[in-house]
Design a protein around this nucleic acid. Sequence first.
DNA 1: TTATATTTGTGTCATATTAACACAATGACA
DNA 2: TGTCATTGTGTTAATATGACACAAATATAA
Lengths: 252, 252
Amino acid sequence: MKNKKSIKIENIHPGLSVDCVLFGFDNNELKILLLKLKSIEKWALPGGFVEKDKDVSEGTNSVLKERIGLENIFLKQFYLFGNVSRNENSHTKLLIEHKIISEDLREWFQQRFVTVGYYALVEYSKVKETTVDFISESCEWHSINELPEMILDHKKIILKAHQTLKKELNSEPIGLNLLPKQFTMPELQALYETVLEKKLDRRNFSRKMLNYRILIATNQRRAGVRHKAPKLYEFDEIKYNQAILDGFNSVW
Amino acid sequence: MKNKKSIKIENIHPGLSVDCVLFGFDNNELKILLLKLKSIEKWALPGGFVEKDKDVSEGTNSVLKERIGLENIFLKQFYLFGNVSRNENSHTKLLIEHKIISEDLREWFQQRFVTVGYYALVEYSKVKETTVDFISESCEWHSINELPEMILDHKKIILKAHQTLKKELNSEPIGLNLLPKQFTMPELQALYETVLEKKLDRRNFSRKMLNYRILIATNQRRAGVRHKAPKLYEFDEIKYNQAILDGFNSVW
DNA sequence: TTATATTTGTGTCATATTAACACAATGACA
DNA sequence: TGTCATTGTGTTAATATGACACAAATATAA
């Protein structure tokens, strides 16, 4: 476990937090990294505060580095959650009762917060171990389809992140960042189907994907399956990024 | 001129502002409402602060209502500008020197701010008069192609708003909110060309638009032009909104 | 009154894309 | 050697797109 940093209130931007929806793709499911809180039977998104002399995006990068030990993760801001109603102090009260945070921080924790939502994409298998923060007792992946009870508006934040992912599937390098270096066409399709929450025709999907010219077919196959071994592909990163700039399928 | 409200610091969310890129469409140009500051030869986006007990979006609505006297304007949050480098106090210093804000507010104004960018769409002709805020001396429309010198990162904010508009042309009711109730096909095309910053083929544009089935052809024509009078159309709002939900041209 | 200049409305055609299908090939395992 | 699930590839009809051409309308000039 890492050293716990104590919060130095005077260096923190007031009333502002960041929350990070970290997506991984495993077992044909979208998974999200969540923290189990110490004082209550609820889970939370990994999040944190922003130092006064740091960019907001840096704050989010720090959160990711602390939780999963990885840097240079794909990260994108998607929304500022700024409704008054999202603030609710029952959790803070419990934290103080359980002496997880000290009484003199009560006022600071109970101020009204707005939070910046970021989504992050990581190759699931690269996350070897996770670490908790000072108010949490465990940190685990959860399927987006089976989310546990969550604090505040965190479920809403996840929903919005998923909607954003859907919208940006053709304008951000989502496949590139969620899949391992090599993958099969069915795996790529499964990712698309999971993000889009709908079934796609296998044959049309393959043709369309190949027509984008962003895939490199290796001459290897995924062995060990009890049926025809599928080809392994890699992304052509240069062409992928160019396609994103040009718009995969620009309407106009 | 409206009554100037004085800022009550204790009721304001600290370190948080909103800035609003209000788009209008006039003379085949995208125009943006800007404020000329009192103390320096620079312009600024209409903006403001968020009261502690108000949603962030309410803060932005208030800004719009105060500047143009209109409510229920289409409004969409598009980005939180949270870099440290965007903060710069030379302007605050001038405001204090010119006694536009009082010395005791110096510290509050010089704290590090993050700002939430909203874009708003309004039918240009509905804006009859504009009003300034307490640090500004005039409030005028400017073509997005001929922006004056602006404070802080406001030019960057406008650029990002325009990029967002481009992206969302097929997923937000942009035509509906920028054009008057009745408009001609060439006017609609001009709007698209302005937002997209590229020329479109007149005949293909018309066909494609009509195929969306979101237009109602009236049996009137725009008279007084020195050539063939173009048909007037209206949007079918129900179908327009449905098309947005379904995705005009969903790729997958 | 007629001609002119300009812009609108509509159509064509070749090509590309999409949706909905069918069937042969592969490879672990029984 | 046969079975079974899955992969790889192909066909076809319908639809959409991009690049064009030409006739109709209308204020203004001649």
